[in-house]
Simulated scan of single mutants.
Amino acid sequence: MKRLFIHHPLFRLLSPVFSGVIVYLLIILFSNDVGQLQEQFLGEDLYVCIGLSYVIQEVSRLLIVLFKKLPIYKSNITTIVLQVLFSIALTIGLVTMSISLYYKYIVGFSVTSDDLFMFNSVFSVISIIYILLYLSHLYLYKMNSDKLKLEEQIKQHIEEDFYEFKKGINPELLFESFEALLVLTQNSQDKADDFIDYLATIYRYLLSSREKQLVSVLEELKVLSEFEKLMNSLPYRSVHIQQKITSDFLVVPGSLLSIIEKIVKETIVSKDIHLLITLSEEETHVVLNYEYQDKIQTRFNIDQFEEIIHVYEIYSTLKIDLKETETERSLYIPKLLTKP
């Protein structure tokens, strides 16, 4: 939390000077002794008022800190009332003692009850104003903090929605598919119809699963079969996804599809390269294994799946891991809740 203005050294140093001068002027006004102001403005009385203002404000500040560290009252109104009452009581005690000693040892006679009432009244008002200034600034700070938190939440929701949109609509795959579709419509109408079915199945799954937190791995595997057919319909693509998963568990929707799509995208495109991706399972992980031939400019990296890694960390203590040899790459993806 940012430090409030009452704790700032400059405010603590300069504020008692201004409030002390104001107290001094008010006391002279109440005493009907304006002529003293012309004769001796910078007198002992002024310094006493400034000194008392400093003591009163520091005591009020320490009282605020004490009440903040000891939140023993549930009601905010009760806390404020007690804080004001304690501050007034301490102010009256300090002012009474200080003014009595000043009159007895400096002025040379005892202070009257009227003078004590006047000093205590003015300094009590100063103490109350000090606390009200603090409370108003604290309230304003909380309001601004709440607004900033709300704006941050709105920003986060927008970013999450945008990520969901990007996850559901992959423009690169979409445009590449449209280009292939233009060629197929000229050469083979039957293949074009099948191609549209593959593409529609994939995007129907992505859009329908945007509202789901987890899906069955069997649903994901069905879509991967359609994705394999779609990739093999593109020019110079030869992709085979070998599925060796027998159990049923949950995965983040679109996670396996996104990873395999990234693998296909960053593998060298050639009619002579046959990309075999094997999906198997261990006790706690799904293992995605393939012989990699990465493009020079876009080498596969696990950091590319930062969003997927973050989502899996929410549901599992296990992490997505990547292991490589000279020819093969294995990606370990945690299994989530096992379905009954």
Rank of each mutant, 00 (worst) to 15 (best):
G168W: 12
G168M: 14
G168H: 13
G168I: 15
I169A: 12
I169P: 02
I169L: 14
I169G: 13
N170R: 06
N170K: 03
N170T: 07
N170V: 01
N170M: 04
N170F: 02
P171E: 11
P171G: 12
P171Q: 11
E172H: 05
E172W: 10
E172V: 07
E172I: 02
E172A: 08
E172T: 02
E172D: 14
L173N: 05
L173S: 05
L173I: 00
L173T: 02
L174W: 02
L174C: 08
L174E: 02
F175W: 03
F175G: 08
F175E: 00
F175S: 06
F175K: 10
F175Y: 01
F175I: 10
E176V: 06
E176Y: 07
E176W: 00
E176I: 07
E176N: 13
E176H: 07
E176A: 10
S177D: 05
S177H: 10
S177W: 04
S177N: 13
S177M: 03
F178C: 09
F178N: 10
F178Y: 06
F178Q: 09
F178K: 08
E179I: 01
E179Y: 11
E179N: 14
E179R: 11
A180P: 00
A180F: 00
A180E: 00
A180L: 00
L181V: 08
L181N: 04
L181W: 11
L181P: 06
L181C: 01
L182A: 07
L182P: 05
L182D: 00
L182K: 12
V183N: 14
V183L: 10
V183Q: 10
L184S: 06
L184V: 08
L184C: 05
L184F: 06
T185W: 00
T185S: 10
T185R: 08
T185P: 04
Q186P: 08
Q186M: 13
Q186R: 03
Q186D: 13
N187W: 01
N187E: 05
N187F: 09
N187I: 13
N187Q: 14
N187V: 15
N187L: 09
S188N: 14
S188L: 03
S188V: 12
Q189G: 07
Q189M: 12
Q189K: 11
D190C: 03
D190L: 04
D190K: 08
D190Y: 04
D190W: 03
K191G: 00
K191S: 09
K191I: 02
K191C: 04
K191F: 11
A192M: 04
A192E: 00
A192L: 03
A192Y: 12
D193C: 12
D193K: 15
D193W: 12
D193V: 11
D193F: 14
D194L: 04
D194F: 02
D194W: 00
F195P: 05
F195N: 04
F195E: 00
F195Y: 07
F195G: 00
I196T: 10
I196P: 01
I196L: 13
I196H: 03
D197T: 15
D197W: 14
D197F: 14
D197K: 15
Y198G: 02
Y198H: 15
Y198A: 00
L199N: 04
L199K: 05
L199S: 06
L199Y: 12
L199P: 10
A200M: 11
A200H: 11
A200L: 12
A200C: 13
A200P: 03
T201M: 11
T201I: 13
T201D: 09
T201R: 09
T201K: 14
T201G: 09
T201N: 12
I202K: 15
I202H: 10
I202L: 15
